[in-house]
Design a protein around this nucleic acid. Structure first.
Length: 275
DNA sequence: AAGTGGACCTGCTAGC
DNA sequence: TGCTAGCAGGTCCACT
């Protein structure tokens, strides 16, 4: 589900409300991607700080007199967070609850590719290791065509896969990588190293543009994405290529193609996107 | 080092 | 109606 816009929309939808709350109870459901790394009960009494985001991870600082640290959250493919008054008993896909004096933060994640991991700080293990390979934030002013071009140099992989890898720039998952390449007019199969400087500049702008548009639209809701208050996103209405196999390109009317790259679907217009 | 493919897990849909 | 194959928003890890 969640690429950078969905994670950021989620963050914004509950960060202010939960900041300063005190943990009353915590509960785990079925195992997620990694063990949380501490007994849930030891979170009780902790005070929640300002929620931040790095790539597709959220960081929820929790401090106690005797222990300070936080929870690093990832929504995987199918995760979402809800922040509610509470009272509902957990369903079969609710795998983490953080009951606070201001409401219940609940992670729902059917496929359980998501994660909730305790770390004493972002700068130490295990958080530091998980964040170590991440590329630059797309809204960082230092992210531009020069940065992309440098990251692509020497890479023979297809540009789509280089974008998706997240070690050059974070945040563009399968939907937004397809969309950005369409907007930049670049064939997703082009080897990354063969993207020229000017095209890298266009691509950087396209990545930032599409992620920004998606953020403004509240993210993409293909099936089940909701923010922490249950609000769906609407960017799927604006998608130019993703999920549109066989439908006419909005620019040239030729049918959108679907191919497989790295065992994932890529949607593109073979007429508008050039090698 | 970079590239490739498998792994994790569940649910939904299309097709027979 | 029921079964099966294929697909899904992510990313880590082992292997070449």
């Amino acid at each position: 589900m969640p690429e950078l816009p969905e994670v950021e929309v989620t963050r914004r939808s509950f960060a202010d409300a939960i900041e300063g709350a005190t943990v009353l109870q915590a509960r785990l459901g079925k195992p997620l991607r990694w063990p949380i790394g501490l007994p849930c009960d030891s979170l009780i009494g902790g005070r929640i700080g300002a929620v931040t985001r790095r790539g597709k991870y959220l960081w929820l600082p929790i401090s106690k007199p005797e222990a300070t640290g936080g929870l690093l959250l990832h929504l995987g493919m199918s995760g979402s967070l809800a922040f509610t008054a509470g009272g509902n008993s957990p369903g079969p896909h609710d795998h983490f609850d953080l009951q606070t004096d201001r409401g219940l933060l609940r992670l729902t994640d059917p496929r359980r590719f998501g994660a909730v991991v305790w770390s004493k700080a972002l700068t130490v293990a295990p958080a530091a290791k998980l964040l170590a390979g991440l590329g630059i934030e797309p809204f960082d002013p230092r992210f531009d065509g020069t940065h992309l071009h440098a990251g692509f140099s020497g890479r023979r992989v297809a540009v789509k896969l280089a974008l998706l890898a997240g070690n050059i720039v974070v945040g563009a998952g399968n939907i937004y990588a397809c969309e950005a390449l369409f907007l930049a007019g670049i064939d997703p199969r082009l080897p990354a190293a063969r993207v020229s400087r000017p095209r890298a500049e266009r691509l950087a702008q396209a990545v930032r543009g599409v992620l920004g548009d998606a953020l403004a639209a509240g993210g993409t809701t293909l099936r089940d994405f909701r923010d922490a208050h249950g609000v769906a996103g609407s960017f799927q209405m604006q998608a130019r290529v993703y999920g549109r196999e066989g439908q006419p390109c909005l620019v040239c009317s030729k049918p959108i193609k679907r191919i497989t790259q790295g065992q994932r679907s890529t949607f593109f217009c073979s007429s508008c996107q050039k090698k």
